[in-house]
Design a binder for these strands. Structure first.
Length: 356
DNA sequence: AACGCGGGGCT
DNA sequence: AGCCCAGCGTT
């Protein structure tokens, strides 16, 4: 089969030049692969430079705190990637002498490394002949062979796995995998693919059937759920003139785990008209009605996630004198400077951009 | 197998 | 407004 030869020829002429290519350092490749999970290259590349700069090797990453790693990941989303990367780095530093496992099966045992990432690292860093199936590859193959099985089922995955195993280059598996991904993102794009410059156009079954847009097949997605957040932005100015905020770290199995935010009241329905309930909440936070003053009217921000629509209201509150017990026990009192260094979700960053 | 997990670009 | 992106872990 000359598929891989033709693909690699295309790749050597048209492939992208990226900082994690042309390196033997498995750690660098690993970091790039984690950053690029469900993330476009354009979006992730800046984070890659900053991450490698801050943590140039496994040991520097393992020596960092989770908070430091999350702060660097801030704004990129899917924060479990950062937590798992950090966790795995500590495991490698502790149990593997700082060396990444040298094959895909052992790589897959590490936190945050699944079938795709294991195959990507093993093929690129260790020349293991194993196909890395990401959504680019699913798209390219589903169109080439008009695969009508959905890509997000076990049955479908097996079909694509088998196809790739037949096609993959044994001389340059890493190049093959990267070539497939570049081809998918540069030519066989999700929308408006560039079929006219496609080297496989004449063999492409989807193109022949004039059915490009029907591939790949995937299961329909769920509609986003609505959530209503009311944040109390509690500001206290001490006698020395220092400004303090009250913040908390999210710990639940939910969005933004281990990221920081303001005291939060969440409702299923829009609560903003119910001023009594909100004031009761603020009072319980601050101890009594005289302990605080609401500044102005709430600021509303809509925040769209892939699977949730968050309607957020920020209420700025000035705290006088002594704070309530609940505030002391459940929340951290931080200076503006310290707060700045904490990892925060985009929504909180957006609010800060508006008001501070 | 189904679900939850971000943020941003493209159409 | 909806779809998609160098997927993975949990339930």
């Amino acid at each position: 089969m000359d598929f891989s030869y033709r693909l690699l020829s295309w790749y050597h002429k048209n492939g992208r030049s990226l900082p994690w290519r042309d390196t033997e350092d498995a750690y660098h490749i690993w970091v790039s692969e984690i950053i690029l999970q469900q993330t476009r290259v354009d979006q992730g590349i800046h984070y890659y430079y900053r991450f490698i700069d801050a943590f140039p090797d496994v040991y520097s990453l393992s020596a960092a705190t989770e908070d430091q790693v999350l702060r660097l990941w801030q704004g990129l989303g899917y924060y479990s990637r950062a937590r798992n990367l950090h966790k795995a780095a500590r495991e490698i530093a502790g149990k593997h002498g700082g060396i990444l496992p040298g094959n895909s099966k052992d790589l897959e045992k590490l936190s945050g490394i699944g079938p795709y990432t294991a195959a990507a690292i093993a093929s690129m860093a260790f020349k293991e002949v194993v196909p890395a199936l990401d959504s680019n590859v699913y798209r390219v193959l589903s169109r080439l062979f008009a695969v009508s099985e959905a890509i997000d089922t076990v049955k479908g995955r097996k079909i694509f796995n088998d196809l790739s195993r037949d096609l993959i280059s044994h001389d340059d598996p890493g190049g093959f995998n990267q070539a497939m991904m570049d081809f998918g993102s540069l030519v066989c794009k999700p929308a408006n693919p560039d079929c006219m410059s496609c080297i496989f156009r004449l063999e492409c079954l989807a193109y022949k059937r004039n059915a490009i847009s029907r591939f790949p097949v995937r299961h329909p997605k769920k509609v986003p759920v609505k959530r209503y957040f009311v944040y109390a932005v509690l500001e206290e100015v001490s006698e020395t003139g220092e400004q303090y905020f009250f913040v908390q770290k999210r710990t639940r199995q939910d969005i933004w785990k281990h990221m920081h935010e303001f005291p939060l009241l969440e409702k299923k329905e829009n609560p903003i008209e119910n001023t009594e309930a909100i004031e009761a909440w603020l009072t319980s936070l601050c101890g009594n009605k005289k302990a605080y003053t609401i500044c102005g009217s709430p600021l509303y921000l809509k925040h769209q996630l892939t699977h949730q629509t968050i309607h957020a209201y920020f209420i700025r509150v000035r705290i006088h004198a002594v704070s309530g017990k609940k505030l002391q026990e459940s929340y951290m009192r931080t200076t503006a400077e310290t707060f700045d260094k904490l990892a925060k979700p985009r929504l909180i960053e957006r609010f800060l951009d508006c008001c501070f």
